[in-house]
Design a binder for these strands. Structure first.
Lengths: 213, 213, 213, 213
DNA sequence: TATGAATGAGACTTCATTCAT
DNA sequence: TATGAATGAAGTCTCATTCAT
C-alpha cells in the first residue's frame, strides 16, 4: 500500500474542500442559505454530514469561504487592463467587450449571486465585502480610470463625472442580468444579451437625444 | 352598553392586520425571512404569537400579504403620467423628477426590498411578480412610452431602442440605490443621490462622448 | 317587552345546554374527543366559544355530562321488564324482541358509542361507569333474572350459568353491531340485523349441535 | 478497527425500531393516541425526541406501523387449522381450546386493542383493516369452515347459519374480554376466563333450553 | 479521516380558556 | 348572557452539531 505523502494529503484535502464548497454553492443557491440544510450539502457533495465538519467549522463557515474559494477562477478577463482607445469606434468596441465579460460573469456565476442575495442578512460587513468584490460592479474602478484617460484626451466630455458614469453602465447591465436571471422576470425586454449590451453601450456613449436638438 | 358594531370590528381588525404586517416587514428585513421567527414578529407588533395566527394562516401567508398591503401607499408619484416635453431641457427636468421619485421610493421602502431579496427562494412565481410590481423597474413601461413619443417628435434618436433604453436608466439608478442601501457598500461613489440622479440622467440624454468627436 | 320569568329562564337555559351537548356528541363522535376542538363544538351548536363556557366548565365537563344528558331519552323499551314466558316459542319471540331493541339502541346512538370509545383514556372510573350504563350490556341484569325464572320453571337447562349466559347473548349482538357500525368492517356477514338477531337467538336457545348427536 | 458492517447496522436499526414501537404501544395505550406526546414515547423508549424521527416520519407513522410490527409475533396458535372432530365432546374440547387462544391473545395484547380503539378516528380505512386483522374476530373464517364441515357430517344442525354462528361465539368472548380489560367493568361476572369460556362454548353447542321442552 | 445515528434547542402552529365589551 | 379576539402553554417536527465506531 503506497503511503500518501504530506503533499498528496494536502492536495486531496484541498480537493475535498472544493468539492464541498461547490456543493454548498449549488444547494445554497437553490434553496436559499437559511433554508438549505447541511444534509442537503452533504448529499450534493457525496459525503456524509460529519465529513463536512472535518473541513468547515459550521454552516456559516461554509458561507464565508465561498467567495474566497471562487476568487481565483472567477477573476479573469475583467482583471485585464483596458487597452488604450483612440476613436469613439474603438471605445464602443472596448466597452461592448467589457459589457459582455461582465454579463457573462454574472450568468456563469448566477448561483454565487443567488447565494449572496439569500445570505445577505447573515453576512458580516467583512464577508459582505468579500462577496461584493466578486460582483461585476467591482470592475467600475477600471472603467473609471479609462474614462479619465479619455476625458484627458478629449474623447469623453470634459464635464463628465467619471465616478458616477463608471458605475452607471455596469449598474444598468447588472440590473438587466439580475432581472432575468435572479428575479426571473421572463422576457423583461425581448432582446438577448448581445443586443442589450450593444444598445446600452451606445446609449452610454451617444445618449438618447437626437443630434439636431 | 356600547357594543361594538360590525363596522367597528372590521376597522379594528384591519388596523390589527396592518400593525402585524408592518412588524413583519421590519423583522423580515432585519433578520431575513427564513431566520426571523413568529415570536420576533409578535414582539415587534406588540401582540402574542397566537394573535398572529388569528390574522394570518402561516408565516408564509404574512410574506405573501406584504406586497398587497403596501401596494396602495407605495404607488404614488410614479403612477402619474409623464407630462409632454418639448425641449431637451424639458426632458432633463422630467427625467430627473422621475429618477428622484424612483430612488425615493426605494430608500423609503428599503425594508420591503430587503424582505423581497431575502425571501426570493420562498416565493412562488405569482408572489414574485406581486413583489416585482412594487419595484421601481415597474415604471419602465411609462418611460418607454415617453421615449417613443419623443422619438416620433424628433426629440430622441430615431435609432434608439426604446424598450432597452427605458430599462437602462431605472436599472442604473436602482443599482446605485441597492448598492448603497442593501449591499451596504459605503460610499460607493462620494456623491449624494441628487448628484447621482442628475449626472445619470445627463449621461442618459447626452452620452459620455464629447461633442467634437 | 315581556320579562322572562325565572321558570322561562331555566327552561331556556336547559334548552341551550341540550343544544350544546348534542353538538358535542356529533363533533366528538366524528373527530374523536381529543382531536375535536371547542370551536368545532361551538360552530356545530351555533353559538360562540365563550357561550359554551357559560354552560360547562371545561371540555372535559362536556364529556362528563353527555351520558347524564342522554340517560332519559335512551332508556326506553329496554327498561321494561321481560314478560313471563311459558314455551320455547314464547322465549324466542321475547329474546328476538330484546335483541332488536338492543341493536336498535346501538345503531340509533352510534355517536354516543363512538364518543365513549374515543374518550376512554380520558374518563375517570365513575364517568366510565356512567357511560357503561347506557350501553346495551346493561340489559344483562334483566336477562339474567329472566333466565333464572325460566330455569326454575324448567324452561332452561338446570345447569345453565345464568350470569354468563345473560351476557353472552348481548355481547355477541353488541359485537356484531360494533363491528359494522364503529369498526366499519364492511359486510362482515352478508345478512341484515334482523337475520343476525334471529339466528343468534336461535343459537342461544338451541345450540349449534344437531338433535341426533 | 472493528467497523460496523452493513449487516450490523441494519440489525441495530431494526432493534431500535422495535424498541420505539413497543414504547409507542405502551404510551398510546395508556394515554390514548391523540393525547400521548412524542416526548412520552421518547422517554418510554429511552431515546431523545429527535431519534424517533430518525426512524419514523411522524406520529401517525408510528401508529400505522404498530400492526405491521406485531403481525408476526401475535399470529400463532390461531393460525393453526382446526383438527377434524367426530363427536360433540371433541367439538367442545376444540372450541374451548380456540376460545382460550382468542381470549389469551386479547389479554396479552390488551395494549394493542386500546391503541386501536383510541386511534379509531385517526385511522384510514386501510390502517383500520390492518388493525382488524390482528383482532381475534379474524379467526371467524376458520371457525366458519369448521362449522360447515360439521354440518356436512351431521354434527351440527343442518339449518345453522355458519357465517353468523362463526361470529357469534368469538364476538361473545371478545366482548367479555373487552368489558373486563378495556372498559374496566370490574367483575362483570364473578367468574374467571376459563369458566366463562367453558360455559359460553357449552351454550354455543347445546343452547340454553332444557332438553325436555 | 469518514460515517451517520443521536441529540435537544428551537421553530411553527394549535387550541382550551379568559375577559373586555 | 353572548361574543370572539387575545393569550401562551404545549405539541410536532427540523436540523446544526457531536461523537462513538
Amino acid at each position: 500500500m503506497p503511503r500518501l505523502t504530506t503533499q498528496d494529503r494536502e492536495t486531496l484535502s484541498e480537493e475535498r474542500r472544493r468539492q464541498i464548497l461547490q456543493a454548498a454553492i449549488r444547494v445554497f443557491a437553490q434553496r436559499g442559505y437559511a433554508t438549505a440544510t447541511i444534509e442537503d450539502v452533504a448529499r450534493a457533495a457525496g459525503v456524509s454530514e460529519g465529513t463536512i465538519y472535518n473541513y468547515f467549522r459550521s454552516k456559516e463557515d461554509l458561507l464565508i469561504h465561498i467567495p474566497r474559494h471562487l476568487a481565483a477562477p472567477v477573476f479573469d478577463r475583467l482583471a485585464a487592463r483596458f487597452p488604450e482607445v483612440g476613436t469613439s469606434a474603438d471605445a464602443e468596441r472596448v466597452l461592448i467587450e467589457m459589457g459582455k465579460a461582465m454579463v457573462a460573469r454574472v450568468t456563469a456565476n448566477i448561483r454565487f449571486v443567488k447565494v449572496f442575495l439569500s445570505a445577505l442578512p447573515h453576512l458580516s460587513r467583512q464577508a459582505r465585502e468579500e462577496y461584493m468584490r466578486l460582483m461585476p460592479l467591482a470592475a467600475a474602478g477600471m472603467l473609471e480610470a479609462h474614462l479619465r484617460q479619455g476625458m484627458d484626451r478629449g474623447l469623453y466630455r470634459r464635464d463628465l463625472d467619471p465616478a458616477i458614469a463608471a458605475r452607471a453602465l455596469p449598474g444598468a447591465l447588472l440590473m438587466f442580468a439580475l432581472s432575468q436571471e435572479v428575479l426571473l422576470v421572463r422576457q423583461m425586454v425581448p432582446y438577448d444579451y448581445d443586443d442589450i449590451i450593444r444598445e446600452t453601450v451606445r446609449l452610454f456613449l451617444r445618449g438618447a437625444l437626437s443630434e439636431r436638438r
